[in-house]
Design a protein around this nucleic acid. Structure first.
Lengths: 207, 207
DNA sequence: TGCTTTTCTGAACACTGTTCATTATATATG
DNA sequence: CATATATAATGAACAGTGTTCAGAAAAGCA
């Protein structure tokens, strides 16, 4: 039966259309301010049709969430591949993470700040596996640094959480407009400088 | 005319009632899920009445915002007052900041994560003055540390942004449920350990 | 008391996410 | 090809949202 194959393809294609429309609207005007009817209008279907492909609005968000993570993971891999020294890799990993956050602000928001996708999935531990995989990548790099003599008397997980928090803090302070107190042209530079300063301090810790 | 004095008092009292009801509802079920009608129901007035005291829903949020900051400022002052050595003050400041965030998760969210209060005020630079004051406090303490020989060849603002990002990152990763990947009982401890680790590293940087 | 000003209400508007009976289309069978 | 069946799409309906505003109620003043 080639028919059901085609139907399957059409279903996938329709999901794609919905996701593309939803992403563009979410990124443009935010999740809350985008209505199902808005999405339906873009793809030229009625609002009810959306519900034949996605259970609810949150499920659309979650699908975009998964996609966004795969892009972040690629960015992080790029950060790792560019360097051979473990510590340089860690530095580069953070840089690429920040770069991703600043270049994809709404997607970063969706992955690491929004509460909706976390609550839509009933908060089971294994759910946020995309996030976990990204964190495992960080831990791997930190582990290599430790083997190379860095952070000797520290715990891998503690160091990793510290690193993650630092870059996540930089990203979210900016994305959520709390850097308004700084001149507009200096904002991103200040965030990057702070990261650079952190790295400087980390280096002296090697001993 | 004692009458208009009383009327003024009644107006203030009414605003108080609305804010108290709104805070309790916001903290309980979140900003988005709380409706003006919900608030009106609690204070036993019609929904329209709310609009005689606040321009819109965002203005209620902003009023709570101001209150929450005054509490944070007190917490930070407490952190400073407890220590005399500048570096110990900095450590303590961060601890009290984190403590505030973990003990008042929804208020912290409102102050440092939510976008609504930032956008309700048209993004003018001078608007987020409460946040600026808190940051100035941090810069003051960092300045004292520098005078005492810490962070010698660094810039005050850079160091301050780094400190702020670190604690803010720790706070928000937890508040926005991204620590789901860790066992529930270890989550807060992990955040505190990461902060402790950061302080350890900072100490070695003194030199 | 009447008159004015202030305060409050509740209906209305245009919107939201979501459901579901009805209709239209596409596939499979006789 | 015609008919029966399965699938897909619709659009009205529901209960909710923030917000506005004409009119009712209450309070202040003469």
């Amino acid at each position: 039966m080639g028919v059901i194959d085609r139907k399957e393809r059409e279903k996938v294609e329709m999901k794609r259309q919905i996701l593309d429309a939803a992403r563009s609207l979410f990124l443009e005007q935010g999740f809350e301010k985008t209505s199902i009817r808005n999405i339906a209008e873009v793809i030229e279907y009625s609002a009810g049709t959306i519900y034949l492909y996605f259970k609810d609005k949150n499920e659309i968000l979650f699908a975009l969430h998964v996609e966004a993570f795969s892009v972040l993971m690629q960015a992080m891999q790029a950060g790792i591949m560019g360097e051979t020294d473990p510590f340089e890799r860690l530095i580069s990993l953070g840089k690429y993470y920040l770069k991703y956050a600043f270049e994809n602000p709404e997607l970063y928001d969706l992955m690491f700040v929004m509460t909706a996708p976390m609550e839509s999935l009933e908060c089971r531990e294994e759910i946020w596996c995309d996030g976990e995989r990204a964190f495992e990548t960080l831990k791997l790099v930190v582990g290599d640094c430790m083997k190379a003599g860095y952070f000797e008397e520290a715990e891998n997980e503690t160091i990793s959480v510290m690193m993650w928090s630092l870059v996540h803090g930089l990203a979210t302070l900016h994305l959520r407009r709390r850097t308004m107190i700084f001149p507009v042209v200096k904002r991103i530079k200040l965030m990057e400088d702070a990261y650079g300063q952190f790295i400087e301090i980390l280096k002296t810790y090697k001993k």
